[in-house]
Amino acid sequence: MSERLLEVDDVVVDYPVKGLRKKPFRALNGVSLDIRPGETVGLVGESGSGKTTLGRAVLGLAPVTGGAIRYNGRDISGLSRSERRKLAAEIQVVFQDPYTSLNPSLTIEQILVEPLTAQDVAKSDATRRVRELLDQVHLPSDAGGRLPREFSGGQRQRIAIARALALSPQLIVCDEPVSALDLSTQARVLRLFEEIQNRTGVAYLFVSHDLAVVRHLSHRVAVMYRGEIVEWGDGDQVTARPQHPYTQKLFLAAPVPDPAAQRRRRAERTRLLADGA
């Protein structure tokens, strides 16, 4: 159990602000967590909490100004572009918006072949792999010749998942991968995430604003607020018996789809806010 795939250790991310002598914007302020192989770590928070920035920092897309991100014990936070490229087979991504995460002018096959050829996989092997990938995400094998705009939101997200799986990574950063989808599509895509994890043992860093989604999928959950993690622990612990007042407020704010239960939750929330004030 001590084995750690990814360790985020006291990470700080500052974004420079336009204009001379302006103080940079601190998006992450000393954030720490870890992910074990095959585990899903849920990252929940509201907009501006820094949850997406943490995901991007792990991917090397955000400037890490302090702390370390260790992958299999090696610090990957300040890697050069060419060293980072070698990590592409280890850490992958699925983004939120299935409409902008796929280049509209490339066919599905071209999109899926891209990460493979970037790692010098032979063209013929790559094409064979594309068929496997489409099968894994339950898309018809003739989908390869079509353009992204011919697919629905849920199908596009399956394509994005297939692209992430192409190099058989150990970790996939999922940045709000189901929040642009309809309820029933969302459920099906989540099931796919779970199925792939059970089969391949890939680990997920699962970023979402939706508590229900995070609870459903995550082994452990971190709650973020204003660039910091305010609560972090086992999923059932954090989501059922939250300790931190912000987490409690967050959980009570989400309306339950049951009129009677929601009336009780509303009353509880009013009480909590009255106590807090």
Binding site: M1, E3, R36, P37, G38, E39, T40, S168, Q170, L183, S184, Q186, A187, L190, N198, R199, T200, G201, V202, A203, A212, V213, R215, H216, L217, S218, H219, R220, D234, G235, D236, T239, A240, A254, V256, P257, D258
Partner: peptide
């Protein structure tokens, strides 16, 4: 049925899954 609110939390990662993961992850 698609509503997740009343679904059970997934609970902590079980060790045997971890073991399976470290062998399968690389080969798949």
């Amino acid at each position: 049925e698609a509503i997740l609110d009343d679904s059970r939390p997934r609970g902590p990662l079980e060790t045997d899954v971890t073991a399976a993961a470290s062998t399968q992850g690389a080969s798949s």
